[in-house]
């Protein structure tokens, strides 16, 4: 059995059983290491991979060989290229809009790729390291194109579900059901995206479909609620036809009775609600702090609210 120790090159040997094909020339004159191929194919166990990467950092010849071999792997990948599903594009681009970048660390010696599973759309909150490009998050997102807003919500919803995934079948099905409901709204022909954020970074994003009578809502930037309190989301309808025309801009508080759209978990970060009962006249969404368990009517002023505008 050969050793896995990266420095051990004793297992280098010319390829046998070449079956008359051109002779192998890969290792000649280089500090090739027999693990280079397995590494380039990502066929090492994680532990071995890390060890080999430490070795690569000290062995320019090996690094060169890995680089070359990786080009072979790239060709293998391109040979199976397939068009990505069309809906993926906007999801990814919009998620990027909402995702802070990591500080650059190419120079820090980490050899190849960051650990998998690190990326996560739904957790772009204050905890994340903010890099040079991170300023995007701070920018008000009113200008976000509809498609972008739709896609962002979709991806966030999916990612949040992914994280909390407990791999039992029924739970999985349940979550897929939720994702489907979200996607249904997002792909409605009349889906309309709105988002807003105040200077403190507190915001509401919503995609509404009046035809389906539903909305997908996410909130962000809210502090954790005080003990005994819960964030509650409300839908507020426009004042009935014929009453004083405050229709848009500065619609008076209480122009119609707010209807509860559900409670948010914790600070509401990453929460996404598909709320039925979204009506043709619903013109605003608002979040208030309510006693645990929620209220039938708001008992405090909104922490954030969002005018939906006309679709």
């Amino acid at each position: 059995m050969t050793s896995n120790r990266p420095a051990d090159r004793s297992t280098d040997r010319p390829s046998d059983r070449s079956g008359g094909a051109p002779a192998y020339r890969g290792g000649r004159g280089r500090k090739a290491h027999v693990l280079a191929g397995a590494y380039a194919l990502n066929a090492l166990d994680p532990k071995e991979r890390r060890r080999y990467e430490r070795h690569l950092a000290r062995c320019p010849g090996c690094a060169q060989e890995v680089r070359d071999l990786a080009q072979g792997a790239v060709r293998l990948a391109r040979a199976v290229a397939a068009p990505a599903p069309p809906q993926m594009r906007q999801r990814v681009l919009a998620a990027a809009q909402a995702t802070p970048q990591e500080a650059s660390s190419a120079a820090d010696g980490g050899y190849a790729a960051p650990p998998a599973r690190a990326a996560h759309a739904g957790r772009s909150g204050p905890g994340g390291r903010r890099a040079r490009g991170g300023g995007y998050l701070r920018r008000p997102v009113f200008g976000l194109r509809l498609a972008g807003a739709v896609a962002a919500l979709s991806l966030i919803a999916a990612a949040v579900l992914g994280v909390e995934l407990v791999r039992t079948r029924d739970r999985l099905d349940q979550e897929r059901g939720a994702t489907r409901a979200v996607e249904q709204v997002l792909s409605a022909p009349d889906a309309h995206g709105v988002s807003g954020r105040d200077v403190q970074g507190r915001g509401i994003n919503a995609v509404t479909s009046r035809r389906l009578g539903a909305a997908v809502v996410t909130v962000s930037g809210l502090p954790a609620p005080p003990d005994g309190r819960t964030y509650q989301l409300w839908m507020i309808d426009a004042a009935p036809e014929g009453s004083s025309e405050g229709s848009s801009g500065g619609a008076p508080e209480g122009s119609a009775t707010p209807r509860s759209a559900g409670l948010l978990k914790g600070s509401g970060e990453g929460t996404s609600l598909v709320t039925g009962g979204f009506g043709a006249h619903t013109e605003r969404l608002a979040v208030t702090l309510e006693p645990d368990g929620g209220s039938t009517r708001p008992t405090t002023n909104p922490v954030v609210q969002l005018a939906l505008g006309d679709p």
Binding site: T99, Q101, S104, A106, Y111, A113, P114, A118
Partner: peptide, 27 residues
Amino acid sequence: QETLLEVWRTAGRFDPRRGSALAWILT
């Protein structure tokens, strides 16, 4: 999707001395 978002997030880690951008992304 996760991969492409990871590309966005961690693009600063890419080191051209270690291979092509495509190779890095596909890895």
